[in-house]
Nucleic acid binder design. Structure first.
Lengths: 207, 207
DNA sequence: ACCTGAACACCGTTCAAGT
DNA sequence: ACCTGAACACCGTTCAAGT
């Protein structure tokens, strides 16, 4: 018979990332321990150290993988609405909000400073920059189609990203007041936020 | 002679909050342990449990105290620029940014979901809502003086807060690209962000 | 090369006991 | 009422050893 299994996995490294994402979704950041991740992947508590220098390195890998998925989703929505300039920005923003809501704790890990010394993880930095470049390109397309004011595209991209990112952060933190959330759907709130920086939309859109 | 000291403190509860803030500033969230806080306050590791149900309760108290200080700073700046409508919003936003930068890790604790089940801490909820009400009032004053578009003041307040909050979060997370940070000062970036939602400022302000 | 089991220092939390 | 010291379960990390 063939050698069946080397020890446990062909690819423990990715199995650990996957286990980490699952634990994050179930138990949140407070419940994410390296020992639990190892156990869920079916190996001893010391096995992860063959693939990750420490807990931070696993968190970096989880974040990096998250950025890859975010890029895929955002770029496919941007492509889909390429010929509908009036909707593209809003749909992209909405996809970003959904990404955050789909997996709140992974989003927090990516953006809330759980990962310290992020500079030490070049893949993490690269993936996060790739996402910003994408936003910048989308902003440039929206400036060309007259949906956004002209101006340095990286600064305008920062505004657009910031306004949606701030909204999500306040939302995830439960900082958005009850009365606001009762009056409008999340989708409407996102549109209202974004329309603040879009051109020719000085009318109120929500009451 | 008088009884000298009961055991150690007259007010261990506040001494623990203070010790927690100090450890947070020095060692960050990862270095904040209840045992270290107790030790810094000069008591045994079990003493905090006489004043806080658990570690989360101490974190809630630290956050609540942070919101109190934030309110004090924001409202005093708003008062100071009450008769200078063109500067008020920018100065308030700048004070918010400085508050975050002064004590990055405390800010993260307040806004990055380290505190789970925040609903269980009524003082925390109350202080955070008090801050939002303040922003709303400032927005209303700015609408009255023609600096901000009309519209439901709570939604506009959410936009203004969101855009600055998003900027800070991206900044603290190191997500703002090198090239952007080289071209403009933080102060200029904050102004650029805010001018996106202010009236009659369609010109570019930064190059 | 990849994984295990024992070991160490540290942590959150509980509890009986002391004043 | 306020605090201590011992105890327990859990955690991150290291290391000698096994295949």
């Amino acid at each position: 018979m063939p050698k069946k299994k080397t020890y446990h996995h062909g690819d423990l490294k990715n199995a650990l990332i996957k286990a980490g994402v699952e634990i994050l979704a179930k138990d949140g950041m407070g419940g994410l321990s390296l020992r639990k991740v190892a156990s869920r992947a079916g190996v001893s508590h010391a096995a992860p150290y063959a693939h990750f220098a420490d807990k931070q390195a696993l968190i970096a890998a989880i974040s990096t993988e998250g950025f890859r998925q975010l890029y895929t989703r955002i770029s496919s929505v941007a492509e889909e609405y390429k010929n509908k300039p009036s909707m593209q920005l809003i749909e992209v923003a909405w996809a970003y909000v959904q990404f955050a809501l789909d997996d709140r704790d992974r989003f927090k890990v990516m953006f809330s400073g759980v990962l310290e010394k992020e500079k030490e993880y070049p893949e993490f930095v690269e993936e996060s920059q790739r996402n910003f470049q994408l936003v910048k390109m989308i902003v440039e397309a929206n400036q060309a189609s007259g949906m956004l004011r002209s101006g340095p595209s990286d600064l305008v991209a920062l505004s657009a990203w910031g306004i949606i990112h701030g909204f999500i952060m306040l939302l995830l933190e439960g900082q958005i007041s009850h009365t606001v959330l009762e009056r409008a759907s999340l989708r409407e709130l996102v549109e209202f936020q974004l329309k603040q920086i879009m051109i020719g939309l000085d009318k109120e859109s929500t009451n």
